[in-house]
Amino acid sequence: MANAGNFSVRRLTGFTTIAIICFLSLYTPILTLVIFSFNAGTSIAIWEGFSWRWYERAWANEQVQEAALRSLQIASFAAIVATTFATMAAIATTRTRPFRGLTAIYAFVNTPLMVPEIVTAIALLIFFASIKVATGYTGLGYLLAAHTAFCIPFAYLPIRARLESMDLTLETAAADLYATPWRAFTRVTLPLLWPGIIGGLMLAFVISLDDVVITELVKSAGQETLPTYMLGQFRRVVTPEMNAISAVFLGISILIVTLFFFLTRKRN
């Protein structure tokens, strides 16, 4: 680190300017959106004073309630199931001797991160369509399955990171102290893995909650989630009610992601 003290990216000409422009272009629209959610008028561009009316209205809107509830149901289910699978996959890929096909499994688990979302969405659409034709089932199952699938790699990453940074001699010590492999897992590995699992759970939850593209293509009639409902509304009249829903949605996402960072940083 010979140059660490001398070189600073901050001294490059124009760095500050560029940074400010980046931040402004990222956050000005979001800030504007949040500000206008408090607009007393019906415009999303002309300020007419402060009010909570759009929040009240969104809160009372039955369609919003229904979509939000569905979003939460799907996200909870997908996060829990995906995290369970991801935990098993992470243990299988870090706590066994390297075996043939291990790389293939890594690739397999992580593929959803690389495949363009729209491609996954179309593939699922076609696949599920044929099942629908064959079985006639049009329930929430398709959305649950799809969300679970694309959440797995997101849940897998923090869990695997945690497992890899864990001191293996702790598990050896447990075995030395008469713990069967199962008890060594439940008494030592699992408790130490919790931050990773919670992290994976929250990441998967947010990813599922935010998803638009796959949901839009996979959902059956009347299965709006909050994001697809909002998308639908924007095609019609836009009132600050949308801003209010967006602001709440944003708040929840930020909260979960912040928690995630705290959990994964602490106790290392």
């Binding site: 001191d167 001699t169 702790l170 010590a173 075995a175 030395d176 008469y178 069967t180 130490l192």
Partner: peptide, 19 residues
Amino acid sequence: PPHKRPVNTVFQSYALFPH
């Protein structure tokens, strides 16, 4: 297997359970 041997180890890194 290790958990059935009446032998215990003091590890160089101690390996105490942090939780």
